Amino acid sequence: MNVKKQYEVLEWAFSFLRNHNREEKVAEILLQHHLKMSRAAFFANMREDISTAIVEQFASDIKKHALTGVPVQHLTGYELFYGRKYIVNEHVLIPRFETEELVEHVISLVNKYYQGRQLFIADIGTGSGVIAITLALELPNVTVYATDISEKALKVAKKNANVHHASVQFLKGDFLQPVIDSSVNPQIIISNPPYISVEERDSLADTVGEFDPDLALFADNNGLAAYKKIITQLKEIPPTESRRICFEIGYTQSLAITNMLKLAFEAASVKTIKDMNGLDRIISAHIN
């Protein structure tokens, strides 16, 4: 590629991505990353020359993404979540915007029902740690615990907590089990567990199905196994005043998970919340 000006490099990348049925916006994200520019500076410098070294690095990443489907976040090494930059790699699920809505819901619950109280929150299956870290940073008087069965995921989560100077207690184990073993009694339990059926693997984009860890994506029993496990484990924790559980869910799973919660906790008040696209995305339950 002989082009040197920023807009020319970008036009080449747009064309290459289009020809491989990839999203053009990836080019802007990657070039801004390689140039180490703010968004404003990036668009203000379209007619500036780019060094050959940067052009070659950028072109290599564009080709990797276009030809293999490797997510742009794995090429840059980070993703934004709730206005902060988080380390991501092949060991953790890349954060999605819908999960910000789950976090926002929990923040609203805390502000409405637990204002000024000392509060314990458990994030189950934390992955990169974005949920736990965001809650720890956004909420005062809150102690946040985060669990994951993957040592490699916990390593990433701990790095992210250190980067953002967030106080989170990380526990290794299967869903709620380390919380139970540590005699922690959280008032709020939040989780974005694996909820995709294994049978749906072939329908996923290659950027997801071939690069996000299976452990974070897939669950047995039509994607419901993780919810069943967490709800079963929840019965082992001593009751506490006003406990709430908030799940991110697949858009077809609301009824099944609502029934699981009501079967386990007869007095539970359960509601489903739609995401910005109008799809069922959050289960919010008051279980005692």
Score class of each variant (00 low, 15 high):
26 V>E: 01
54 I>Q: 00
172 K>V: 05
236 E>H: 03
70 V>M: 14
86 Y>I: 02
112 K>M: 07
202 D>R: 12
185 N>C: 08
82 Y>R: 15
201 R>D: 04
52 T>I: 09
5 K>Y: 12
96 R>P: 05
128 S>N: 02
247 F>D: 08
104 E>T: 15
57 Q>V: 00
229 K>Q: 10
132 A>D: 12
85 K>S: 13
135 L>V: 13
270 V>R: 08
129 G>N: 04
273 I>H: 07
237 I>R: 09
183 S>M: 12
96 R>V: 10
136 A>C: 09
152 K>D: 03
129 G>E: 01
169 Q>I: 10
43 F>E: 03
112 K>C: 06
4 K>E: 11
112 K>Q: 10
202 D>M: 13
168 V>E: 01
281 R>Y: 10
178 P>G: 11
81 F>Q: 09
125 G>D: 06
40 A>P: 00
165 H>L: 05
238 P>L: 04
148 D>W: 05
69 G>E: 07
139 L>V: 05
194 P>F: 04
135 L>C: 14
2 N>L: 12
253 Q>D: 09
152 K>N: 02
142 V>R: 06
193 P>G: 06
114 Y>Q: 14
192 N>M: 13
73 Q>S: 14
176 L>S: 14
59 A>S: 10
69 G>V: 11
207 T>S: 15
141 N>W: 09
58 F>Q: 01
229 K>V: 07
282 I>A: 01
169 Q>F: 06
72 V>K: 08
26 V>F: 02
216 A>W: 03
106 V>A: 12
132 A>V: 13
175 F>I: 15
24 E>D: 02
182 S>F: 05
183 S>Y: 14
99 T>F: 04
218 F>P: 06
288 N>H: 06
22 R>N: 03
212 D>S: 13
144 V>I: 10
54 I>N: 00
94 I>R: 08
242 S>V: 03
16 F>M: 02
47 R>P: 00
131 I>Y: 11
3 V>M: 13
35 L>C: 02
135 L>T: 12
204 L>Y: 11
105 H>E: 03
271 K>I: 14
204 L>W: 12
66 A>Q: 05
3 V>W: 08
281 R>H: 06
69 G>I: 08
112 K>L: 06
34 H>E: 07
58 F>R: 02
259 N>R: 13
48 E>Q: 02
198 V>Q: 13
129 G>Y: 02
40 A>H: 00
48 E>C: 00
90 E>N: 15
124 I>F: 10
243 R>I: 11
244 R>T: 07
254 S>T: 15
45 N>R: 04
47 R>V: 00
84 R>V: 11
203 S>H: 11
57 Q>N: 07
181 D>F: 03
279 L>V: 02
221 N>W: 07
167 S>E: 05
271 K>Q: 14
137 L>Y: 08
100 E>K: 15
56 E>I: 04
